[in-house]
């Protein structure tokens, strides 16, 4: 079973990297770009069969290690 974890800075935390990327996109001619928030993406391979348990376990992993809850929020998806 595979799980995906998306980690992003909380909206209240300034993301200077995302800001620089947004400026670069505008420089490239993508004038419609208003903002970019940069994050992290994890694919976790699991020896598990139950999606509900898997999601609970991966959420715990995200909370304990993959994200720093002080500055980041996360979203967990379990793939069938």
């Amino acid at each position: 079973m595979k799980a995906r974890v998306y980690v992003t800075l909380k909206p209240s935390v300034f993301d200077p990297q995302g800001r620089v990327v947004a400026d670069a996109l505008v420089t490239l001619g993508y004038q419609e770009v208003q903002d970019v928030r940069q994050g992290k993406f994890f694919e976790v391979e699991l020896a598990a069969t139950d999606a509900v348990t898997a999601k609970a376990r991966v959420t715990e992993m995200a909370d304990k290690l993959l994200a720093n809850p002080v500055i980041e929020s996360y979203r967990v998806e379990v793939l069938p």
């Binding site: 800075l9 935390v13 300034f14 993301d15 200077p16 990297q17 620089v20 002080v70 500055i71």
Partner: peptide
Amino acid sequence: PGAMVRNDRI
């Protein structure tokens, strides 16, 4: 307490 993020001017 707290955390570190990227310097504001990168």
